[in-house]
């Protein structure tokens, strides 16, 4: 059976992959996917820590994850809505071309 360390390393890798995607991708939707990956890495951490606690009767960790999944869903919905409203103006979701505001 995998130990706690394995889950934590996996979560850290997922988080780094998500951060890389969020920072390097030029497409707004890919950035959004990167953010979702980072949030899910944190969720994985919570579940792993909860599962390997001395007393798993305490539901704190799993409750945290349920809430954060719901929040991530809301966040994705709002993110996509914002991307659509941007697309109506620019006709693109490429972030390099979105540059009306600077200074």
């Amino acid at each position: 059976m995998p130990a706690l360390n394995h889950y934590l390393v996996l979560a850290a890798i997922l988080f780094s992959l998500g951060l890389t995607a969020a920072l390097t991708r030029r497409n707004a939707i890919m950035v959004l996917i990167g953010i979702e990956l980072m949030l899910n890495a944190a969720n994985l951490n919570f579940i792993a820590f909860w599962r390997f606690r001395p007393n798993p009767d305490e539901m704190v960790g799993i409750m945290f994850v349920l809430f954060s999944i719901a929040i991530a869903a809301a966040e994705a919905a709002i993110g996509l809505a914002l991307i659509i409203s941007l697309y109506r103006h620019y006709r693109t979701t490429d972030l390099d071309q979105v540059d009306a505001l600077k200074g």
Partner: peptide, 12 residues
Amino acid sequence: LESSEAALKYFL
């Protein structure tokens, strides 16, 4: 246009 752009940057 600026409003959508600002919101998306804020969001990301």
